[in-house]
Computed example of a mutant assay.
Amino acid sequence: MVASLVKILLIEDSLAEARFLQEVLNGAKLEQFSLVHVKRLGEALNQLQQDDFDVILLDLTLPDSQGLQSLHPLIQCAPSLPIVVLTNTNDDQLAIESLRKGAQDYLVKRQVNLELLVRSLRYAIERKQISEALREANETLEIRVAERTAQLTKAHELLEVERMKDEFISIVSHELRTPLTSIHASLRLLSTGQVGQLSEQGQQILDIAVTNTDRLVRLANDILDLERIESGKSVTIQKTCDAAELIVQAVETMKAMAAKHRVTLSVTTASISIWADPDKVVQILTNLLSNGIKFSPPQSKVWLAVEAKGKEVLFTVKDQGRGIPAEKLESVFERFQQVDVSDSRSKGEC
């Protein structure tokens, strides 16, 4: 089997360090590494214009650039290339900050060996590829939603609107959900450690990718659920169930999200027998709780209660968010309508 060739751009002002890294990589058996060495950030930017690389090894102490400020021009020049930071400092805070600014991994020079270096390079490339795939999927979804929304706005005949809606749902179902499922499965496989253990910082970044992929999958499924309901294809299976048990299921599902946003769930239950589809009721309660949590400030509460009202049962969800303006109360129930979402976006939600 012919070993794969990985092209590395090494930005390192120390010739001794560069020779050491080359010698370490020469010991690799499963991969072949081609190392191009430059001493300055400016030289690296010129090299990136002239040649293609698979990954960048970046020293944080350069003659023409110091610290994490080197990351920005590299990312601007080659946004699709993964960057592994090299430093003499074993500083967890610096490591986390480098990942936040766009690096894929962080290595302390005196701890580098063949296994660690090769694994870091391999995972950096894989994580960057997954990240790019997610970014492209997000951009594609945004473009298609914008295009379809504009077309629907201009449509004058109901038959044309229905045809375009069905086409849009088909795109979401087949062209978005299928690659998302594949990406999601790959991320899950990486997170289990079955293909190798990640560093703590790498695991944190991977967990963020998994969370956002989960959100995209849920979005696609919600759109499909909405289409089934409007087309009359949604199936409900009603049976006798306990309202208190349904509340418990919804709360258990949302506990992790509430804890993440430092929101307390306050529950008032009552054992009331109802005739309903339990899955649909739990889904509704979960969606309402999720919305309440996203728009609630930290250290606040979201209340969930149930009570009998004659022959009917009333579920109530209340939060301490900013609320919905009176003039928006009707429009928020239309498709693809939202009020100001700055509260949730400031907490990383969409």
Rank of each mutant, 00 (worst) to 15 (best):
V2Y: 10
A3S: 12
S4E: 13
V6S: 00
V6L: 08
L9I: 08
I11T: 01
E12T: 01
L21M: 15
E23M: 12
L25H: 00
G27R: 12
Q32A: 10
S34N: 12
H37Y: 10
A44Q: 00
Q47M: 13
Q49M: 13
F53K: 05
V55T: 03
L62M: 10
Q66M: 08
Q66T: 10
Q69L: 12
H72K: 15
Q76K: 15
C77H: 11
V84R: 00
V85F: 02
L86N: 01
T87V: 05
N88K: 07
D92P: 15
L94D: 03
A103M: 02
Q104R: 11
Y106I: 01
V118I: 14
L121S: 02
Y123G: 00
A124P: 04
R127W: 02
S131M: 11
E132W: 07
E136T: 12
I143Y: 10
A146D: 06
T153V: 10
H156G: 04
V161A: 10
V161N: 09
S173H: 15
L176C: 00
R177W: 03
L180R: 00
S182P: 06
S199M: 01
L206G: 07
I208A: 08
V210W: 03
T213A: 05
D214N: 13
R215W: 04
V217W: 00
V217Q: 01
A220C: 10
N221Y: 03
N221I: 09
L224R: 03
L226Q: 13
G232D: 06
S234L: 15
Q238P: 04
K239C: 03
T240I: 11
I247A: 06
A250T: 09
A259N: 09
S266K: 12
V281N: 02
N287G: 06
L289D: 00
L289E: 01
N291V: 08
Q299Y: 08
S300V: 08
K301A: 05
L304T: 02
A305N: 14
K309H: 14
E312V: 05
E312Q: 15
V313K: 05
V313G: 07
V317S: 03
G321I: 09
R322I: 14
E334N: 14
Q337W: 07
V339M: 14
D340M: 07
C350A: 13
